[in-house]
Simulated scan of single mutants.
Amino acid sequence: MTQILIVEDEEKLARVLELELGYEDYQTTIATDGQRAFQLLQENQYDLVLLDIMLPGISGLEILRRYRKTNTATPILLLTARDEVHDKVSGLDLGANDYITKPFQIEELLARVRAQLRQTGPANSQQDQLSYQDLTIDLQSRDVTRNGEIIDLTPREYDLLTFLLQNKNQVFSRDQLLDKVWGFDYAGDTNVVDVYIRYIRNKIDKPFQKVTLQTVRGVGYTIKDVKQ
């Protein structure tokens, strides 16, 4: 059964999340303060974490920072207040997969949970690696290598590359990539996608004289299988 850790100090909200996720056949554990949450994360393996930013003891962002040092694969969905724009950006930069703003509709939260779990699968059956030609991504360590050489990607570059590689042969528009990689609530310029595509190409393609990320004019970007 899929294991979800709910880290939320508002006990009524935590209980609602527990009930709603239970109705969807998820197994849940609740932590109402940062110290307890971090202890549980050290002692157990979860398929997904719902993490409130404002917590007593240890803040959600600090938990996220510490946890990503040892676990870079488990999806983390931040629960944020409407005016915490800086914290949302900081959370994504620290390795959060997505965020949802309070107050939220439970249907939207459940949809985001399902989307993250579709990408990763259960913790015990998660695919270990993605490969394309001589490019390899280790989904557990988040190491990216090409021809045996380690490539240093930022968390956002890694997420974008991984998403496209997990969905090979599908063309995604800038808006779709913003939704899937940056998050549903991202309100920035779509040109940020072009910027990050260029960053990735300069790291994984240009030094090796390869072509991985392909542009489909007037549509968006894709990674296509090489025809033999």
Rank of each mutant, 00 (worst) to 15 (best):
T154M: 07
S90L: 14
V85F: 11
V216T: 00
R68L: 01
D185Y: 15
K206G: 01
I6F: 07
T70E: 13
G91Q: 10
P56R: 08
N167K: 01
L213F: 08
Q176R: 04
T101N: 04
L77F: 09
D98L: 06
K210P: 02
Y46S: 01
K12D: 15
L51M: 10
E62R: 02
I63Q: 08
K224L: 01
N202E: 15
I223K: 02
L21C: 12
N167W: 01
G91F: 13
E84W: 08
N191W: 00
I30E: 05
V181I: 10
G22P: 09
E20K: 05
Y67V: 04
N191A: 04
N44W: 02
R198K: 13
T29Q: 12
D134P: 02
G183D: 07
L110T: 03
T154H: 00
Q133H: 10
N124V: 06
R65T: 03
R146G: 09
R82W: 08
R68I: 10
D194P: 00
G34L: 14
I151L: 15
G121M: 08
R15F: 14
S59G: 15
L21G: 04
Q116I: 05
E43S: 11
L94I: 09
A81N: 11
A73T: 12
A111P: 01
D194V: 00
K206T: 14
D98Y: 06
D9V: 13
Q3D: 08
Y221I: 01
L153Q: 01
Q105H: 07
L13V: 15
E24W: 06
G188P: 02
Y132P: 07
T72C: 05
T162M: 09
F172K: 02
I58P: 00
E18S: 15
T74L: 07
G188W: 03
L48Q: 05
K206F: 11
N147V: 13
K210N: 12
I58T: 09
T145Q: 15
R142V: 11
G148M: 05
F208M: 08
E107Q: 13
N169Y: 03
S173W: 02
K210I: 11
L50H: 06
V211R: 10
R36L: 07
K88I: 15
R15M: 14
D9I: 14
